[in-house]
Amino acid sequence: MNKIMVIGVSAGAGKSTFARRLGELTCIEVTYLDRLYWKPDWVEASLEDFSEAQQQVVQNAQWIIEGNYTGTINIREPHVDTVIYLELPLRVCLYRVLKRRVQYHGKVRQDIGEGCKEKMDKAFLKFIVTTYGARKKTMIERMQRYAQEGKTVHFLKNRKQIEGFLETYIKN
């Protein structure tokens, strides 16, 4: 397990927290795609800059890349050996997004680009709700393909499974 993608069904699935904790336990540097994508004040990076930044990361001997960004997943897929997929229920994802909004109000999280204070709007919540089912189906198909390609796939669906996975690194 040297080149790891942490992806999830939705915002609020716990990708960033999981990746941070896994990075601490394995001493593998974590790259948060949101940090590469979002420039100060929520300005989007160009596709060229975003892609180039990822192409540099995947050349490293070890990495954890957190985030979905399926539009550029083809940069990461050929290099990854381990995929960790978090699929928590929609209600949990929504709760976590709302909790995060309150917890980080007016602050910048470590997994987001500098100068991007926590925000949320109705469009983002609507996006989560309306795309959850389709994303879930697509992600399951993607995980099956990864397994067929010989990649190690970890499918974690609840807090107990997530904590159990991380515990294996604490014990070693």
Rank of each mutant, 00 (worst) to 15 (best):
E44H: 04
A45E: 15
S46D: 04
S46M: 07
L47W: 13
F50C: 04
F50E: 02
A53W: 06
A53R: 11
A53S: 15
A53C: 09
Q54H: 09
Q55K: 15
V57L: 12
V57G: 13
V58K: 04
V58N: 01
V58T: 05
V58W: 00
Q59A: 13
N60F: 09
N60L: 13
N60S: 14
Q62D: 12
I64E: 05
I65T: 11
E66Y: 10
E66R: 14
E66K: 15
E66T: 11
Y69F: 12
T70K: 01
T70I: 01
G71Q: 10
I73H: 05
I73G: 01
I75P: 10
R76G: 06
R76Y: 09
E77T: 11
H79Y: 15
H79L: 13
V80E: 10
D81Q: 07
I84W: 00
I84M: 02
E87W: 01
L88C: 00
P89V: 05
P89N: 05
P89C: 05
L90R: 13
R91S: 12
R91K: 11
C93A: 11
C93T: 14
L94V: 10
L94F: 02
L94Y: 04
Y95H: 07
R96E: 10
V97D: 06
L98I: 15
L98C: 13
K99G: 02
R100C: 10
R100P: 10
V102E: 11
V102G: 00
H105G: 02
H105D: 08
G106V: 02
V108C: 14
R109P: 02
R109K: 08
Q110S: 14
D111C: 15
I112V: 12
I112P: 00
I112C: 04
I112S: 03
G113P: 08
E114K: 14
G115T: 09
G115R: 10
C116K: 09
K117S: 08
K117H: 05
K117V: 12
E118L: 04
E118K: 03
M120Y: 03
K122W: 11
A123R: 07
A123I: 05
L125F: 03
L125G: 01
K126A: 07
F127C: 04
I128W: 01
I128F: 02
V129N: 02
V129P: 03
T130S: 10
T131Y: 04
Y132W: 09
G133H: 08
R135F: 01
R135I: 01
K137I: 13
K137H: 10
T138G: 12
M139Q: 05
M139K: 04
E141V: 00
Q144K: 07
Q144A: 11
R145C: 02
R145D: 04
Y146D: 06
Y146Q: 10
Y146P: 03
A147H: 07
K151L: 06
T152E: 13
T152V: 12
V153Y: 02
H154C: 13
H154T: 01
H154D: 01
F155D: 02
F155S: 03
F155V: 00
L156H: 08
L156I: 03
K157G: 08
K157N: 14
N158V: 03
N158Y: 05
N158G: 08
N158T: 07
R159W: 08
R159E: 14
R159A: 12
K160W: 03
I162C: 08
E163W: 06
E163I: 09
G164Y: 05
F165R: 07
F165S: 06
L166E: 06
E167L: 12
E167K: 15
T168C: 06
T168S: 15
T168V: 09
Y169H: 10
I170F: 05
K171R: 15
